[in-house]
Amino acid sequence: MTFSWPWALLAILVIPLIFAIRWWALRRRRRAAVRVTSIALVRTALPGRTRWIRKIPPALFVAGLALLTVGAARPQASVPVPRTSATILLALDISGSMCSTDVDPNRLTAAKKAAAEFIESQRGGPRVGLVTFAGSAGLLVPPTDDTESLVAALDDLNVGRGTAIGQAVLTSIDAIAEVDPSVAPTGANPGNPREGYAGAAIVVLTDGANTQGVDPRVASREAALRRVRVFPIGFGTTEPVPMVCENSQFDGRGFGSWYGRGGFDMGGRNVRRLDEPALKRMAETTGGTYHRAENAAELQDALGTLPGTFTVIRERVDTAAWFAAGGAVLIAAALSLSLWWNRPR
């Protein structure tokens, strides 16, 4: 919590003054009680519970003054605020290993289906953009609320060689910067860091490790400087499985010399390993969360839980009115109780 007028907190010094005046008044009352009749002695012998109850009004009064003082200082709190105008960039891995068949019929097909359902679920909400990456990254669809064009773009994905996770994050940042003036593009000065997160997030769906291009740690720092969170999803198992591509997903270009080294053995089995530590660091650096999905159902669950996370951002809200209202209620309660307990009987 921060204060717009912190010097107003000096008014809190009134409270010790009130205690001093009350102590002085009680001291004078005790001296006078010695000279009164036995009725006064009876009142001083009342049960401890009654004496304790009579301390409630002063305590409420002091608490009310404290709240009014804090309210006068114009406190501001960082609170979660839903943002339907957020921008989401979905970065999909289309490297050759996405044709692995540990997910039926293969990872790429399952990822396309889950991505389509995710996009449909955001209809009428945040803008969604698509980035695909293999050996390089490219913007497939700029952030838009046109659900049909986004889903249609998923139909024509071809796998490629390599995995450029870091470049995918930077490409996503630039796509966000095109529609969100609060986010600086890569290569530009992001300005002084501000509290909270931007109304934008990047979801990276990958089944492997960065093999070329920008280091994911560098890309993560760039995203963090712009307050853009990254939510990586590690997809697929880590066991060697056959790789089977549909004709529409695999054109064969550049793969002839790849079999047997680096990514696949001569039997066409995927032996790559998911780099979970790197993905977890990416999430931690940017303020996002990492999700693991070994099958299509887990992938759909992971994507389904994300919107409630990154469409809620933190903004500064002036809470002075709440403190003022609370202080007024406490003071009113103190005066009411005092008048009630001291009414003529």
Rank of each mutant, 00 (worst) to 15 (best):
L279T: 06
G252L: 07
C245A: 08
F250A: 03
G256K: 10
D265W: 01
D275P: 04
S257G: 15
N247D: 15
R281E: 12
G254S: 13
E284R: 03
W258D: 12
E276M: 09
M282I: 11
D275G: 04
Q249P: 02
W258R: 10
R269E: 02
N247W: 14
E276V: 13
E246C: 09
R273Y: 00
A278N: 04
F264K: 02
G260D: 02
G256R: 11
F250S: 04
G252S: 07
K280E: 09
R273D: 04
A283L: 06
E246W: 13
E284V: 01
L279A: 05
K280M: 09
G252M: 06
A278K: 04
V244H: 14
R272A: 13
M282E: 09
A278R: 07
G268P: 00
E284W: 00
L279W: 03
G256D: 12
F264D: 00
S257L: 14
V244M: 11
W258K: 10
L274M: 09
R261A: 13
R253S: 15
Q249H: 03
R272V: 14
M282T: 12
R272D: 10
G256W: 09
R281P: 03
S257P: 11
G263I: 07
N247C: 09
G267F: 08
F255W: 10
G254P: 08
A278L: 07
Q249V: 03
G267S: 10
V244E: 14
K280L: 08
F255D: 02
E276Y: 06
G260H: 04
M243L: 12
R261P: 05
M266H: 10
D265M: 01
D251C: 12
R273A: 02
N247G: 15
